[in-house]
C-alpha cells in the first residue's frame, strides 16, 4: 500500500505532509507518495531531524490510494485530516480546494 507521511506543525498545529524535497506542505496533492515500506522507512528516518529540530510533532505514515493524479487517504480519519471536518465544508484544507 502506498503511504504518505503526515505530521502537525509545532507552532500552529496545522496538519502537514512531507513532500519529495523534504519540505512540509499543507495539501495532500503536493505530498510525496511512498510506494512501499522501504521508502516509508527511509523517509521516516529523514524526518527524525525535523522532529529533533522541533518543526513537527505527531509524525505518522498513513495509507493512500492513488488513481492517476488523484491521491485519496484510505481511512476516514486520514481523509478528515486531509480535508477538514465533514460537518464544516468551509473550514480546514477543503476550504482552499
Amino acid at each position: 500500500m502506498s503511504q504518505v507521511i503526515s505530521a502537525n506543525r509545532l507552532s500552529d498545529g496545522i496538519v502537514v505532509f512531507r513532500a519529495s524535497n523534504g519540505a512540509w506542505v499543507e495539501q495532500l496533492r503536493d505530498a510525496e507518495i511512498l510506494p512501499d515500506s522501504v521508502a516509508v522507512k527511509a523517509a521516516l528516518d529523514l524526518v527524525e531531524l525535523d522532529i529533533k529540530a522541533n518543526h513537527v510533532i505527531e509524525v505518522a505514515a498513513f495509507d493512500v490510494a492513488v488513481k492517476g493524479d488523484h491521491v485519496e487517504p484510505v481511512h476516514l480519519r486520514d481523509k478528515i485530516r486531509a480535508k477538514g471536518p465533514t460537518i464544516h465544508p468551509g473550514h480546514g484544507k477543503q476550504a482552499a480546494l
Binding site: 502537525n8 500552529d12 498545529g13 496545522i14 496538519v15 510533532i57 505527531e58 480519519r77 478528515i80 485530516r81 477538514g84 471536518p85 480546514g92
Partner: peptide, 9 residues
C-alpha cells in the same frame, strides 16, 4: 487546556 487534535491545537 491545550490539546493537539486532528487538524490543529
Amino acid at each position: 487546556g491545550v490539546y493537539l487534535q486532528l487538524h490543529a491545537y
